[in-house]
Simulated scan of single mutants.
Amino acid sequence: MSEPLLSVRDLGKDYTSRGTKLTILRAISFDVGRGEVVGLVGESGSGKTTIGRSVLRLVEPSAGSVRFDGTELTSLSSSAMRRLRPRMQYIFQDPFASLSPRMTIGEILTEGLKIQGVGTARERLDRARAALEQVDLPTDAVNRYAHEFSGGQRQRIGIARALTLAPEFIVADEPVSALDVSIQAQVINLLRELQQGLGLTMLFISHDLAVVEYICDRVIVLYLGRIMEIAPSAALYARPLHPYTRALLSAIPSPDPDSPRHRQILKGDIPSPADPPSGCVFRTRCPNALPACGETVPELREMKPGHFKACVRDDLN
């Protein structure tokens, strides 16, 4: 892996709901190298979006360290964090809810530039037009409103908004899940082209394992706020080591309906963070669980070069 641009250590996030403490993230640690795309995958409720928002301090972490290019973010003042914001941007999941219906596209794209005091009004509008060209939209879109565009076009506008400040790091939070299948491939290809062309570093959040395989260099598999497995994308898809990862990958639709595939069906739902299982949080749904799995929280161990898993069983490799 290249030199880390983002280093996360023991990240934790707690919420309180109706007097009950909910631990959403538990001791999350990982790095993202410069120019690397790292995928975060897992079922709904695994903590993917909470990680994405915590590392940018859109929500405040409850514990741990987040270092961006050597700077500890968790201890920065609001003003210091604001000065760093142009280097870190977020692409939201819902292209309909993330764009104000009362602002023109030009106002939406220049808002961040204005807050940061970048250029004159004309220069900011020029940068907005340039960003629209980068995402293959006409520059006259600056005079129109969000309701005049399709879902795929709105997500392109959301991507353009992230690009206007020329960031180094982008969190893409389920950027195609709200789009029609026919449009998803276009947006994913656009993101890949932009990432490679601009040398962007990206944390890519998705539940779609096929999309993650296409765009990500490495993959982090999450379950109930804990990391189950980390591996280079090719290694993870060729030979996953954790039972949870195997179950997720077995659910990917095959382009050949006649190809043999052993589908691993997970029983039940992901447990509540208010009452997580003891030991390994996955054990209540794991087909390979042993009594020991309820006694010890497994550490994330390197089983092969660059390939880590959190499981008490070594015989599943």
Rank of each mutant, 00 (worst) to 15 (best):
L11F: 06
D14F: 13
G19L: 04
L22W: 06
I24T: 13
I24S: 13
R26T: 15
I28S: 05
V32E: 08
E36N: 09
L40R: 05
L40W: 06
L40S: 10
S44R: 01
I51D: 10
R53N: 13
V59T: 10
V59Q: 01
P61F: 12
V66M: 02
F68P: 12
F68V: 09
D69P: 12
T74Q: 06
M81I: 10
R82T: 14
R83K: 12
Y90N: 01
I91F: 01
F92P: 13
Q93M: 02
P95D: 02
P95I: 04
R102V: 15
T104K: 11
T104H: 04
I105Q: 01
L109M: 07
L109C: 06
I115P: 01
Q116G: 13
G117W: 01
G117Y: 04
V118S: 11
T120W: 00
E123K: 11
R127H: 12
R129W: 11
Q134D: 13
V135S: 01
V135Q: 00
D136E: 15
D136R: 15
D136M: 13
L137C: 09
T139P: 14
D140C: 12
A141E: 00
N143T: 14
N143Y: 12
N143G: 15
N143C: 12
A146D: 06
H147N: 14
S150R: 03
Q153Y: 07
R156V: 02
I157S: 08
G158V: 02
I159C: 09
A162H: 00
P167Q: 01
P167N: 03
V171T: 05
A172G: 07
D173P: 06
D173E: 07
E174D: 08
P175G: 10
A178V: 07
L179P: 04
V181C: 03
S182F: 10
Q186V: 14
Q186Y: 07
V187Q: 00
I188D: 07
L190Y: 01
L191G: 01
Q195F: 04
G199C: 11
L203D: 10
I205M: 03
I205R: 02
D208N: 07
V211A: 03
E213T: 12
I215W: 00
C216R: 04
C216V: 06
C216F: 08
R218P: 13
V219D: 03
I220E: 08
R226E: 15
I227T: 11
E229T: 10
A231T: 08
A231G: 02
A234K: 15
R239K: 12
P240D: 10
L241W: 02
P243N: 05
S250H: 07
A251Q: 02
I252A: 06
P255E: 04
P255H: 01
P255D: 00
P257E: 03
S259Q: 13
R261L: 12
G268M: 09
D269C: 10
I270A: 14
S278E: 14
T284Q: 12
C286M: 03
P287W: 04
L290D: 14
P291A: 05
T296S: 08
P298D: 11
M303H: 11
K304N: 14
K309W: 13
K309I: 15
N317R: 13
